[in-house]
Design a protein around this nucleic acid. Structure first.
Lengths: 234, 234
DNA sequence: TTGAAATATTAACATTATTTTAACAATAAA
DNA sequence: TTTATTGTTAAAATAATGTTAATATTTCAA
C-alpha cells in the first residue's frame, strides 16, 4: 500500500468533524473535510478520496442526493453516518449505493473497522476485477464457491439452494449490511412480495446449521430494520 | 494386514500342486487348490482369493479363457505359470489381463517374490488408488480412465457408455457440484432437451451398480436443485 | 440381412426434499 | 409499556428426484 489512504469527511457539525478527523489522522489516514454537500461533491471529484464518510443530515443538501450523484460516475466507497433510529434512511442509502453505515453515536473502533472493511473491498474489487477468489472464510466457517460447499470446523454443512444463495450473497459482501430487500430481490426476483417472512425462516434454518448457538449468532448478524451482515474474517 | 492372504492354485499336475501348496503354506499363506479350469473359476468366485496362480496348460479349458472370464468381473491378481519357451503365451496372457508370470521350472523364492509383488500392487491399488495418474479413487470405488474400467472392491463394474461418461465427469471434478445442465450438455450435446429425466434414470442405474445401498448413496450425492457431486477420497 | 441382446429413451408413479404459509414467541425500539 | 420487528416451529403445499417398467433403438454376431 503506497502512501496513506485518503478519507473525505462530509459533516456539518464542527465537533463531530474534529473528532473524526483527529481519530483518523491518529490512525494513519490522510483526512480532508467538507462542511456541506456542495463542497463535498467538489472535493470528491478533485481529491479522489479512497473512502467517503457522509453525514446524512446536512443543512444544504439531501444526503441521498449526494450518494446518487457520486454513483453516477464513481464507485468510491461511501460510508453513511446516520442518526440513531433513522432506519429508513439507512435502507435507502444502502439501496442507492452506499457501502456501509455507522450510527451516531459511534466509537473510534467501530469507525475504523468500517473504513478498513471498505478499503479492503475496494482493493479486491480493483485487484481481482471483482470475483473475490473462490473461497470465503470467517472463523470456523468456510465457503468454497467453486465446489459449492460450506464447512464449519471441517464438517460439511448441507444447505438448500436458497440457503446457499443467501449465505453466498452475504459472504460475497461480508462486513457490509445487505438489506432484506436486496437479498429477497436477488433470490426471489424483482416481483417477490415485500414481506421478509421467508427470509426469516431461511435465516433461522441457516443459523441452526452454521452457528454454535443460533440464539447468539456469530457469523450472520441482524441489523434490525435494515438487513443482515456476515462478519468478516477475524 | 488382517489374517493370512489366500492364494488359489489352479494346476492339474499333482506333484507341482503339492510343491506349490506346501511352499506357500510354509510361508504363511492360506492355500486352496483347483485341479482344472472349471473348478478354478468356481473357487475364484466362492473363495475370493487374494492372488490366483494359474497354470496355462490345463486339460479341460484354455487358460486364456479363464483369464478372460475372470477379468469380466474381477481384478484379482493372476500370476500365470507357463512352460518354458512359450513366449507367445506369456504375451497373450498379459494382454488379456494377467498380472505376472513365472516359467517352469521355478524355485520357491521366485514364486514368493512374484506373489509378494502381486499383493503389493493390489494393496496399493486398493489403498492409495490414484497414485497412478489416470485413475480416480474414493473409498472402495476405483476408476481407471486409461482402461475405461470401474471397480468396486476389486470387482469390475460394467457401465454403459453414458453411465461411464457421467461417472467420469463427476470424478474428474470430484468434490465439486456438477450441474444437471452441464452433465446433460456434455453427454447429449447442446441441443438436448432441458429435462433431466434421462440423467435421473442413468443415475439410478449407476447407483444400483456402484453403491452398497442405492437409497443412501455414498459416492454420488445429489444437490437438490443443482446437480450431482462425486465424493472426494476419504 | 436378420434377430437376439444390450442400450437408450420415455412415461407413469412413488418418494423425498424444499419452499411457503401461518401462528405464535422472543426481542428490540420508541 | 406498547409497538414493531425478528426468531422459531410445525404443518401444508409444491417441487424435485428416484424408481420401475414398457417401448424404441442400436449393436453385433450368425
Amino acid at each position: 500500500m503506497s502512501g496513506k489512504n485518503c478519507i473525505l469527511v462530509i459533516e456539518d457539525e464542527v465537533s463531530i468533524r474534529n473528532f473524526i478527523s483527529s481519530s483518523l489522522t491518529a490512525n494513519g489516514y490522510k483526512v480532508v473535510t467538507a462542511k456541506d454537500g456542495q463542497q463535498g461533491l467538489v472535493m470528491i471529484s478533485s481529491y479522489r478520496p479512497d473512502v467517503v464518510l457522509l453525514d446524512l443530515g446536512l443543512p444544504d443538501m439531501d444526503g441521498m442526493h449526494i450518494i446518487q450523484s457520486v454513483r453516477e460516475w464513481s464507485l468510491v466507497p461511501i460510508i453513511v453516518v446516520s442518526a440513531n433510529g433513522m432506519q429508513a434512511d439507512k435502507v435507502k442509502a444502502l439501496d442507492l449505493g452506499a457501502d456501509d453505515y455507522v450510527t451516531k453515536p459511534f466509537g473510534t473502533e467501530e469507525l475504523l473497522a468500517r473504513i478498513r472493511g471498505a478499503l479492503r473491498h475496494w482493493q479486491t474489487r480493483k485487484d481481482t476485477g471483482m470475483s473475490e477468489l473462490g473461497t470465503f472464510k470467517s472463523g470456523d466457517l468456510m465457503i468454497d464457491f467453486d465446489k459449492r460447499r460450506v464447512t464449519v470446523r471441517g464438517e460439511i454443512i448441507h444447505l438448500t439452494q436458497n440457503e446457499y444463495k443467501i449465505v453466498a450473497i452475504l459472504s460475497k459482501y461480508s462486513g457490509r449490511v445487505m438489506t432484506y430487500d436486496y437479498i429477497i430481490k436477488e433470490i426471489w426476483g424483482p416481483y417477490a412480495k415485500g414481506d421478509n417472512q421467508i427470509l426469516r425462516v431461511n435465516m433461522a434454518n441457516i443459523r441452526r446449521k452454521i452457528e454454535d448457538n443460533p440464539a447468539d449468532p456469530q457469523y450472520i448478524i441482524t441489523e434490525v430494520g435494515v438487513g443482515y451482515r456476515m462478519c468478516e474474517d477475524k
